[in-house]
Design a protein around this nucleic acid. Structure first.
Lengths: 405, 405
DNA sequence: ACAGGTGGGGAAAACGTATTCCGGATTGTG
DNA sequence: CACAATCCGGAATACGTTTTCCCCACCTGT
């Protein structure tokens, strides 16, 4: 018979009425009383304290906790301990497969580490991103991971003019990103300050593919991957390329564009035509539409700086009556899951997104604690480290081997 | 001259060293001291308290807060107020476009409401899901939203046998879901108990498409949508159908399968062939492969109970040398973003996923507070409400109009 | 038998914030 | 000019934990 006798006043669910919300919850206090021990003992029994508690007492406490359905109040725990058990993840757009794969990796690693993740969506806006980081800081997360920050130094802010590209399209592309360069610089500086402060306060920061910010960064080899892709495509027999890319303030786009161009140069091929557009599926589609409307001449392949854009390009081509792969080859970058679902399957550069997420969290958590110096001047940001993420070219039917004409 | 004079001992970043983690953070105390007011005044100035604080004091406090980079400790706020500012979201797999769209909606709505979301991934496992809900409760979230619970009453647990389906495949399909029916029942009951307790404690619960659980549910019209799809396809001239579906313990699959069959019956058409498989892309592909290997006879269209599976089916068909849409039509359900990226674009039933996420949060938050009865017997779960989510058939080229043979 | 551990329980002080209560000042009114 | 009414600052308490002390009881070795 395991049933335990309870007097009628035994279990007390105390009512907390605040802000119109009524909460009843069973606290450590209740558990302790039910188990006939004190506060402290109950606390020690229920979490791995350094102190030991006698076996029978521990059992009684655990029993009581079970019976009452006790769950520790993590907020209270966090204030008491001074550190919460959450990690913050900020992504540009969770509905984008690139980010959702990363998020999956981060969440998985967090779960393994007994942490839970709070997620916020920056909607590709640096301003919002900053705001979010500020808000997130209030949660005192153990780490914050930022995927897809769009802030770049103002220096390289405007996309280079392209002889082959329609001026109108270029203007449209940069319009959205041009909210006064100094404004952007301000947000950028503010973000850095915010993160530095957070780090100074003991938080860990990891950035994904933002190696121009002074924090631990998972550096996707954008340049190298794009270069290798160009080389491999040259090897397949392609000669005349176009690049669908976004504004250079988007670092990723910038690096991939330059890497690709470098690869072409290396292969002794002419520089690619530039198709500046948005960093989205719609952007890719529009670039394709514009290209075909204008006449694509002897173009053989268009490289879009990410898969989502590449898929847009394929759609645009199809809408223009061209068959991607046969009439005009297409290649992307990221190797999102959908790359194999489109037809022809998309040639891409594989970025281990899931793993990337995992490692982002791991790297953040592994960061050395900040110097605990009373001298505030020397309490500088600890040297940012960079974790290189290798990538791999994956050739698929969207870029079939090309017979020399 | 706005510079404020500070004595050298002015700003005190107090060090908290606990569990090896060192945190310095600026507290309300510091702000109060810097501003030359008390605790309470600072608190009142920085959050909209019911009490007013004199304008000049308020300004001083805000100034000090700015200068010091103060951010309120939300954990502390939560314990003090007794309710946190988070909502919990549990999804089966954030890397699945179905869930990522929902997550985007939930997150957006949360941000609008000044809440932040904590996300956990149940990996399609009821056990994990239960565990997660338990863990989440510790955060005392304002609401928990569960998308994609897979638990169904044990009653309808096994998939019906299908004359047209390979027994081996069916066995494989149900194998993973068959960890002893009573076990499943236990988890289900435990989840219900857990959620009920949470609700009883003042939390709000919303479920997405789980109308067999006694909680507020966003009910996607799976049956009706599938039925309408069948009707519309019949209207296009299709006569002989197959359904790629998953184990009936997955409610969604079950309902869509039955709805589709009902639509066919209504149109006076023969019942569909059944292709039991996994609820995934791989499952869809395998079903297609099996089907073609076995010989698909006079089959004209395969309906997969979700888009991800449908895309798998298309891939499988292609691998078997068939052209989806021309040789064999394909239709899905959900209308995920990728449905328009595949070619031919996929006929589907549009579920407003993003909106669904938004409304899930809204519905949860709008729930009536639980009855505050001291009589524990009558403190039953308040009547669950069901928010119907209408769906819409979207015909696309994967199901071209069929000439009568 | 007695000093010196040592294992473990409990009271109380954190943690950082919200809120209640008290009282002093300022204001309005007769 | 007195007296209430209002405004608002501050001390103190609460929130649910963890953690630090303190102390007792028991064990061990001499």
């Amino acid at each position: 018979m395991v049933l335990v006798e309870r007097d009628d006043t035994g279990v007390t669910l105390h009512d907390v009425t605040l802000h119109g919300i009524t909460l009843h919850s069973v606290t450590l206090h209740d558990v302790a009383r039910e188990a006939g021990v004190s506060y402290a003992t109950a606390s020690r029994a229920l979490n791995g304290s350094d102190r030991t508690v006698r076996a029978d007492n521990a059992a009684r406490v655990r029993d009581a906790a079970d019976r009452l359905g006790y769950t520790p109040d993590l907020s209270a725990q966090a204030t008491a301990r001074g550190s919460s058990s959450t990690v913050a993840l900020v992504v540009s757009d969770i509905d984008d497969p690139y980010f959702s794969s990363i998020a999956a990796g981060v969440t998985e690693a967090a779960t393994d580490a007994g942490l839970i993740v709070t997620m916020a969506i920056a909607d590709r806006s640096p301003g919002l991103e900053l705001q979010i980081v500020r808000a997130l800081r209030g949660h005192r997360p153990r780490a914050v991971i930022i995927a897809g920050s769009r802030i770049a130094p103002a220096a390289s802010t405007s996309a280079p003019a392209s002889s082959a590209s329609a001026a109108a399209s270029a203007a449209a592309a940069s319009a959205s990103a041009s909210a006064s360069a100094s404004d952007d610089d301000d947000t950028r500086a503010a973000l850095i300050a915010e993160l530095a402060a957070y780090q100074q306060a003991g938080g860990r920061v990891a950035l994904i593919s933002q190696d121009d910010l002074p924090f631990t960064t998972l550096a996707i080899d954008n340049t190298g991957g794009a270069r290798q892709l160009a080389l491999d495509l040259a090897g397949l027999g392609y000669r005349r390329f176009a690049i669908a890319h976004a504004d250079d303030s988007i670092r990723t786009s910038h690096d991939r564009r330059l890497g690709f161009a470098a690869g072409l140069a290396e292969a002794g091929l002419p520089p690619p035509a530039l198709l500046p557009t948005d960093f989205t599926r719609a952007g890719g589609r529009q670039a394709a539409l514009d290209l075909i409307a204008r006449g694509h001449g002897d173009l053989e392949l268009v490289f879009a700086v990410n898969d989502v854009m590449a898929i847009g390009v394929m759609t645009g081509l199809r809408e223009s009556g061209l068959l991607p792969g046969r009439d005009l080859a297409v290649a992307g970058f990221d190797d999102i899951n959908a790359a194999v679902d489109v037809s022809p399957a998309l040639t891409s550069v594989r970025v281990p997104l899931h793993e990337l997420g995992r490692r982002a969290l791991a790297s953040a958590l592994a960061e050395p604690p900040p110097h605990t110096t009373t001298d505030r001047a020397s309490a500088a940001v600890s040297g940012p480290m960079s974790v290189p993420i290798p990538v791999e070219v994956i050739l698929r039917p969207s870029t079939p081997t090309r017979r020399h004409p």
